[in-house]
């Protein structure tokens, strides 16, 4: 009985244990790993992935997927950067609209939310599989980014904007504050609100949910819009940290966030998973990335290791589910 109890605890905290083991191994091999500055460094690095992955988790819980987050991140970052540095000029009438910092940020966030909502609308209105709809959006948003930036980085965004990605508040990096807020909000949404309950219900059984009077379309559109908005937040953080919007920012970020969701124990077929699990998944990926760099492992090997960790996580998850 006791053994069984230990086992259930082990299963419950396996990602935490894995994270602990990884940290232990890296700290044995590198004396730079377990330092305060490196700790904040890792946290700052993962905050973008945490933001995106939280949105991804909500979508995956509804049995969907969003491949467009990386492109949306780039587009929204570029739009905010463009508005900050150049504003909008309407040539024929010689009208120029300048943007305040807040205005530019809000427009960026709105664009992300709108694109996400559009994804959700296409998926529900035309019954397009999420994989296909968001794959299309991945290309569209990337193309729009390249059009808008004309293929060049937009830089010179000012000190105030840089605060979002590089500043400190009460001894904690600002991106960490932002992602922590996002996580707290998402935990509350998933556990304590009607929307959260509907998300789990739809992912668990869509047809039963429809019969129960849940407006499936509305829930999905909201969820995709949230994910788009979070991608935009990620875009702001990335752009701010680099002090420039790169046209190829966020390439393959969707894969990192899906990896975090999967390592966090969510099921891609929906209905199963938690926000905190995903956060742990993102931390594991972040720590691995950081540790492998500190250990001077070649970036090519880093990819191999990351892939193997994903596989391992899923295999352990599956075998646990079986033994229960």
């Amino acid at each position: 009985m006791n053994l069984k109890l230990y086992k259930t605890y082990f299963i419950k905290f396996q990602s935490l244990i894995a994270l602990f083991v990884i940290c232990l191994l890296i700290s044995l091999l590198s004396d730079k790993f377990l330092t305060v500055s490196n700790g904040w460094n890792v946290m700052r690095q993962i905050s973008v992935n945490v933001c995106i992955s939280v949105g991804m988790t909500l979508i995956v819980l509804t049995a969907g997927i969003d491949l467009s987050v990386g492109s949306v991140l780039a587009l929204c970052g570029a739009i905010t950067a463009g508005l900050l540095s150049d504003g909008i000029g309407i040539m024929p009438v010689d009208l120029y609209i300048g943007f305040t910092l807040l205005g530019a940020i809000l427009v960026g966030l709105f664009c992300g939310t709108f694109i996400g909502g559009f994804n959700g609308w296409v998926i529900t209105r035309f019954n397009v599989p999420p994989f296909v709809a968001t794959l299309a959006m991945l290309t569209i948003a990337r193309g729009l980014t390249l059009l808008y930036t004309e293929g060049h980085p937009i830089s010179g965004l000012g000190e105030n904007f840089a605060y979002i990605g590089t500043g400190w508040l009460l001894g904690v990096p600002v991106p960490v504050w932002i992602s922590a807020l996002v996580v707290v909000a998402a935990v509350i949404i998933t556990n304590k609100t009607r929307l959260g309950r509907y998300i789990y219900a739809i992912g668990g059984n869509e047809s039963a949910s429809r019969l129960s009077g849940i407006n499936i379309g509305r829930v999905k559109i909201i969820v995709y819009a949230i994910a788009g908005g979070l991608a935009a937040i990620g875009g702001l953080m990335v752009t701010s940290r680099l002090d420039s919007a790169q046209p190829n920012a966020g390439v393959s970020y969707e894969l990192d966030s899906i990896a975090a969701v999967v390592i966090g124990g969510a099921s891609l077929s929906g209905g199963k998973g938690t926000i905190l699990g995903t956060v742990l998944g993102a931390i594991i990926i972040g720590v691995l990335n950081n540790g492998l760099v500190l250990l001077n492992v070649s970036p090519f090997w880093q990819q191999v290791v990351k892939g193997m960790v994903i596989l391992l996580a899923v295999i352990i998850d599956k075998s646990n589910a079986k033994s229960r």
């Binding site: 609100t193 789990y200 668990g204 039963a208």
Partner: peptide
């Protein structure tokens, strides 16, 4: 199984699913 229940959710959440709105206090359940 196909249309009545969300099998992965617990008994309570299944029973509650149709009437969540009635138990919302300040947006929280």
């Amino acid at each position: 199984k196909k249309d009545g229940l969300v099998l992965g959710l617990d008994v309570q959440k299944n029973i509650a699913i149709t009437t969540l709105k009635e138990r919302e206090v300040l947006g929280l359940l």
